[in-house]
Design a protein around this nucleic acid. Sequence first.
DNA 1: TTGTACGCGTTATCAT
DNA 2: ATGATAACGCGTACAA
Lengths: 338, 338
Amino acid sequence: MATMRDVARHANVSVTTVSFALNNTKPVAPATRARIEVAMKELGFQRNAIARALASKRTHILALLFPALQHQFSGTAVNFFTSAAAKANELGYSLMLWPLSNDAEELTELTTNGLIDGVLLMEVQLDDPRVERLAKTTVPFALIGRTREPGDLTYVDVNFEDAVERGIEHLVSLGHRNICLVDGNTPTHRLVGYGPIVRTETTYTAAMRARGLTPRMFSCDETPAGGREVAGHILDEAPETTAILFMNENAGFGMVSGLRARGKVVPDDISMLAIGSSPEIAALSDPEISLMASPSVELGQMGVEALIGLLENPAETPPQQALVPCTFIDNASIRAPR
Amino acid sequence: MATMRDVARHANVSVTTVSFALNNTKPVAPATRARIEVAMKELGFQRNAIARALASKRTHILALLFPALQHQFSGTAVNFFTSAAAKANELGYSLMLWPLSNDAEELTELTTNGLIDGVLLMEVQLDDPRVERLAKTTVPFALIGRTREPGDLTYVDVNFEDAVERGIEHLVSLGHRNICLVDGNTPTHRLVGYGPIVRTETTYTAAMRARGLTPRMFSCDETPAGGREVAGHILDEAPETTAILFMNENAGFGMVSGLRARGKVVPDDISMLAIGSSPEIAALSDPEISLMASPSVELGQMGVEALIGLLENPAETPPQQALVPCTFIDNASIRAPR
DNA sequence: TTGTACGCGTTATCAT
DNA sequence: ATGATAACGCGTACAA
C-alpha cells in the first residue's frame, strides 16, 4: 500500500501538502495539486482510515444498537438497516452493528474504546436504561423512537399519533362508528412501556372520544394464534364492531381467519387497518391488508443524518427532533360498513 | 480517557509492561500484574481500539457485504445479521454493514483503506463478479452461499440439495407421486444464476427421476399475485398434482388462496412444502405452511467463525467449507394424498 | 522480568 | 502556498 509519504516523494512535495490537498484544509496551488493527483493515481494511493482516525480523533464509524432479542421486527428491520447503512456510506461514514444484550458493561466499553463517533439507538422504550447510561457518557447519540420525556435529545420517531388519527378519520368518513383497537401484548411491552403502543392507545382513546365514539381496546400475542383468539373476543364482547385498527402485524393474519371462522368476512363484514406495518407483510394477507406503512427507510436515513448532524455541528440549536408520518396504503381490507 | 501511559505511571512500570500484561505477550510477574490491574481499575482504563489497530495492523472489524437492492430476503435476513454480529462480538470483532450497489470502485476502496480485516459476502451468485474482484485483493473473505466452482474459497451455504431430497422423500413416503416445483422468477435469478434456485431445480429433477417420477417445474414472481397465477397454471397443466414443493416464500401465500379459489384446499387436496423459508413467515399462512427452515442463525454464526478462522490461521488446510442443513418443521400444510 | 525507543500513517501546529 | 515536526496511543524489537 502506498502511503502519503510515497505520494509526497513522487510529487516532490511534503506530506503536509498532500494532506492539505486531500482534505482541502488549506489552499494548494493548482499545479501542485495536479502533480499530487497524478502521483496518487500512479501509486493507487488510498488514505489509511485507521491512521486518519488516530490523528484526527474521528473514526467516521457509527454504531447501530439494537436489542439482541427481537420480538416482532420483521419487514421493517431490514429496510431500516439497509437504508441507514446506505445513507451513512453516502455521507462518508460506516455503520457498525451492535446487538446488545441488556448488559450495561458492553455499552460502556463500546463507547469508550474510541472506535465509534456516535451511536444510533433502536427500539427505544419509554423509560430506556440505555438512554440514561449513554447520557452519562460523552458519546453523541440519536434515538430511533423516543423516551417519555425526550427533552433535548436528538431523535427520529414514527408519528403514530398522526397515523392513528388519520386512520380513524378515514374509517369514520366511510361511516364506521364502532372501531376497536388491537395491539401487542408481550411481557416487555407491559413492563417497560413500549412507546408506540402506549402512544397509540392514548391517541386512539382521545380520537374516539373526540368524535363521541366509544373506544374498545384489545390485546393479544404477536402471533396468528393470538389474532384468532382475539377475533373471537371481539365478536363476543363487541359484536357491534365494524372496523379494527391494529398494530400487531402477525396477529393480523390470525384475525382474518378467526373472523372468517365465525362467518365474518374482511372487508365485507369488518374492515381492518394496520398501523405501522410493512407493505411487504401486509401484502401477504388475503385480502391484502390496508395499512399505515411504517416509514422504515426514511427513519434509517433520517436517523443517520440526525446523528451526523450532531457530530459535525456540535452546538446545533434546536436539537434535531423529527416525527415521520406513515404512508396510507389502501389495499383491500377496508370498505364502508353495511 | 486514560491511556496506557497513565496506567504505567500509576503502577510504576513502563507502558511495555502494561502492554504485555494486557495482551499476554510476555510473562509478567504476578505482583506487577496486580499493580497494573489496580491502576487500570482506578483510572477506568480502556485500550484505544484505533491506536491498537494502527500499531498491530489488525482492526478486528469485519465487513458484511450485501446487495443494496434486496429481492425476497425477509425473515431470514434479520436473523442472519443479528447472529453474525453477535458471534463477531463474542469473538472480539465488530461487524460493519456494507450495502453495495454493484459498483466495483466502492468495493476496492473499502478493502484497501485498512479499515477492515476481512469480508463476509452475502447473496453470492453462481458467477459472482464480486468474488472475482475480491480474489484479486489481499483481503481475506468468506462467502455465504457459493459460486459455481468454489475451488478452495471459504464458504458456508445452505444445503438445498439435502433439503430438496429430504422434502421429496417425505412427500413420497406419504404416497405423493405427482410433486411439482415452484420457484422464483426475477430478472436477476435468470440472468446471473442464483445458486439456490439452480441447485434446487437440479436436485429436484434428479430426485424425481431417481424415483421414477416426472418432474414438473413452474416459476412465478415473488409475490402473492404471482402465486395465485401459478396456482392456476398448475391446475391447468398438471391437474394430477398432489403436492407442491416451493422456494418462493411470498408466492406461497398466493398459491394457497389461488388453489382455494379453484376449489382446492391445502392440505386436503394439495400438500405444500416450502424450501428455505423462515418459520416466522411460514406461520403467517393459513394453514401454517410446513417447511424446510433456512438455517439463517447458524449461517451467520458459522460465516463469521469461518472468516475469523481464515484471519487467524492464515494457512489453514483444508479451507472451511460448510453446508448447513435445513430443519424440517411440519406445520399444517402436508398430508397424504387421497 | 522489565524498560527504551521506534514505528504505524495520518492530521495539525507553527514556521517560512 | 508549502514544509518540518510533533502529536495520536499502542505494539514490539532490542537491550538490560
